[in-house]
């Protein structure tokens, strides 16, 4: 039982196929993965390898066709906002709510009273760098700010697990790097378990304690890279340059395969 206790997330031989107009697509084939508490686990792989599908299963939004997903030893049957919060690539802010009201959304659903909601959300806006923007509507915010509001909305319900599906994918490179630093800071202070999907080698190497490389469709786990390094990481250090080359060679083959198939 001691092993199972340390595992917060267990993915057991899950598979997923989609029926489309042009036939059946095997999105995910037999993926198994265990993630202990407190990790920053990045999933990287070529387009269409089922990364997002895997994350959707953890979020309880997508049901697997085979295998099972366990969180704290219990099978996932649907969204569980007490354990899991999700940030999507599209921030998906509610345009009729202010930044503050967006951050309050999850607590509102859980029936928290107005005073507590306000207090939690207001306190979060500081570290989010949004102190002066509480009353702004999403259309008045920049892309990076919107995504920080979305992250704030996920942090507000204070779950053990934070799922992030290419959260910085739509941002420019500088903003991305700053957001990465900022996310690290949050992660290290809150000790959450983060499952982070990305296309970016840089993000994977700068942020993760572990990188999971997936194959082209149907997505399987190709290799797992442990990164027992401190922060902040000097990306030009010989160690990281070597790791980067290794990671790239793993991903390159799969990306080539994905390109030739699509």
């Amino acid at each position: 039982m001691t092993v199972a206790d340390a595992e917060l997330i267990r993915i057991d031989g899950v598979a997923k196929r989609y029926r489309t107009a042009s036939g059946v697509v095997d999105a995910l084939g037999d993926v198994s993965l265990a993630v202990p508490e407190g990790q920053f686990c990045t999933i990287i792989g070529p387009s269409g390898c089922g990364k997002s599908t895997l994350l959707g299963m953890l979020a309880g939004l997508v049901g697997p066709d085979g295998g099972r997903v366990l969180i704290e030893g219990q099978p996932v049957t649907g969204p569980d906002p007490r354990r899991v919060a999700t940030v999507f690539q599209d921030p998906g802010l509610f345009p009729w709510r202010t930044a503050l009201e967006n951050v309050e959304f999850g607590l509102e659903l859980q029936g928290a009273d107005r005073g507590r909601r306000r207090a939690v959300a207001t306190e979060l806006l500081g570290p989010l760098g949004l102190r002066g923007f509480a009353e702004k509507y999403p259309r008045e915010l920049s892309g990076g700010m919107k995504q920080r509001v979305a992250i704030g909305r996920a942090l507000a319900i204070d779950t053990k697990i934070l799922l992030m599906d290419e959260p910085f994918g739509a941002l420019d490179e500088q903003t991305r790097m700053l957001m990465g630093e900022w996310l690290l800071d949050i992660w290290r202070r809150t000790n959450k378990t983060v499952i982070f999907v990305t296309h970016s080698l840089h993000e994977a190497l700068a942020l993760s304690t572990r990188v999971v490389v997936m194959t082209a469709r149907p997505g399987r786990i190709k290799s797992v890279l442990e990164l027992p390094l401190g922060y902040p990481r000097a990306m030009e250090s010989p160690e990281l340059v070597t790791l980067r080359a290794k990671l790239w060679s793993e991903i390159r083959d799969e990306s080539l395969r994905a390109m030739s198939e699509s």
Binding site: P79, D80, W96, L109
Partner: peptide, 26 residues
């Protein structure tokens, strides 16, 4: 926007909550 419905569901919104907090204001 159907994505907003997905977001609301990920936060545990029931069908009724999705209607009241996403569809109606949307």
């Amino acid at each position: 926007n159907p994505h907003l419905v997905t977001v609301a569901r990920s936060f545990g919104a029931s069908p009724l909550a999705v209607f009241a907090k996403v569809l109606l204001p949307g």
